[in-house]
Design a protein around this nucleic acid. Structure first.
Lengths: 222, 222
DNA sequence: TTTCCGATTATGGTTTTCCGTAATATACTG
DNA sequence: CAGTATATTACGGAAAACCATAATCGGAAA
């Protein structure tokens, strides 16, 4: 079982619940941080002191407040931590149930588990800790495991996201092309943008651009 | 102090935290419900048994899952409960920090407190319970209290919202007019819709309709 | 009633988006 | 290298949105 655990989570309630869960496993060496920056610092120091953590549980989205932060999200924290300490087990613990983001966490940051916050999250969290402590298996909350497997045959790439974000922030298609040209980014023609939008509308079953942006906002893609 | 409390909240972690908070106040008669429907039923039965609750703490947004529900949100639950038991003290306990929705809760459903979930929510919750149990004052988490006071000089009416919702769901301006005509709703001309949209775009500093819908979605207006 | 004001409706012209077709370019494969 | 698939660019007509102007309606005030 894990000996030294750190939690990155801004909400008091989740801190409390995780603490209790770890208590049940008799894990007493437990720290928590309400900001990603603090979590990273603690992990750094622990490595320097030669007493590294062996489990990180991290939320993904953190509320912004008065404090200026370098790392604004759990994704960034996890990425940094993975570089620092490749052997650390990492559990992402989030309300986020959107396919692409979770996928990227497993593929790019090689997280070991994803626990979805919800009606049964504590049970899932316990399972994840159990599995991760005794093997090198991965764990994913059952609610999203199924959704994660049915892969999108159509891949929405970085350019699509960029275009959608520009549209959502009031940029016209013509203006987007101008920006792409001036920053020497890939599509340099209006028709390329039009074609991508057309595909996206087709894929998301959107009637028009307004609808499309509305849908992708709801899905958390932008 | 309150004697009998019910919590409507789908997340285990918040249930746990609220339970502990109430423990601190020596409130032992405490129920919780993971679905709005269940909460309403419990409140109904308590009234019938002549042992009504004296405090409801309710989340606003509930995750959808396999179960079919009548009440999908805390807003609906609160509205129903307010009709059933006008003297019940109600605390809305949510991550939602959008102005119009909170305002409506105070004005239409006459909630007694709004506690924003976040880094200090347990402290706020304790304060709210303290104040509500000893007086008829209202409580609002300080982070949003200030934002709540600065009122909009420009009034966005029901028709505006309706138009925005139609737009967000992929209806074209022409189609909206058709719908309004066939349902005998107020504006019967394209120019009326255009004018309203133009005003809205002006007010929200939106460059075009896509931008406008994106903004009002972010603000939680639709 | 008449006048005034604001909201709605009507009209026309300009811009932007939409969508099909086709040419060109790039990448990957045998 | 040729052949194929995929992405990008180009063009043009139709639809929708955008915008300014003007006419009309309806209620409030003089």
């Amino acid at each position: 079982m894990f000996k030294k655990v750190i939690l990155a989570e801004d909400f008091e309630e989740f801190n409390l619940a995780v603490k209790q869960t770890l208590d049940d496993f008799n894990i007493v060496d437990f720290q928590h941080a309400k900001y990603c920056d603090d979590a990273l610092t603690k992990i750094r120091i622990a490595i320097q002191d030669n007493k590294p953590y062996d489990l990180l549980i991290s939320d993904l989205s953190f509320k912004k407040d008065h404090r200026e932060v370098k790392l604004g999200s759990g994704d960034e924290l996890i990425q940094k931590v993975r570089e620092l300490q490749p052997n650390l087990k990492i559990i992402a613990y989030s309300i986020e149930d959107k396919n692409p983001r979770i996928k990227s966490l497993f593929e790019n940051s090689e997280i070991d588990a994803f626990v979805l916050k919800g009606r049964n999250s504590i049970t899932d969290l316990k399972k994840a800790i159990q599995i991760l402590s005794s093997s090198d298996e991965k764990f994913i909350s059952p609610e999203i495991a199924s959704a994660l497997n049915q892969k999108n045959n159509y891949e929405i790439d970085d350019t699509d996201i960029k275009i959608l974000k520009y549209l959502a922030s009031g940029t016209s298609q013509d203006e987007i092309i101008e920006i792409f040209k001036s920053t020497d980014t890939k599509p340099h023609s209006k028709s390329a943008v039009e074609k991508r939008l057309s595909k996206l509308k087709d894929f998301f079953k959107a009637n028009n651009t307004v609808h499309l942006v509305s849908i992708v906002k709801d899905m958390g893609i932008i």
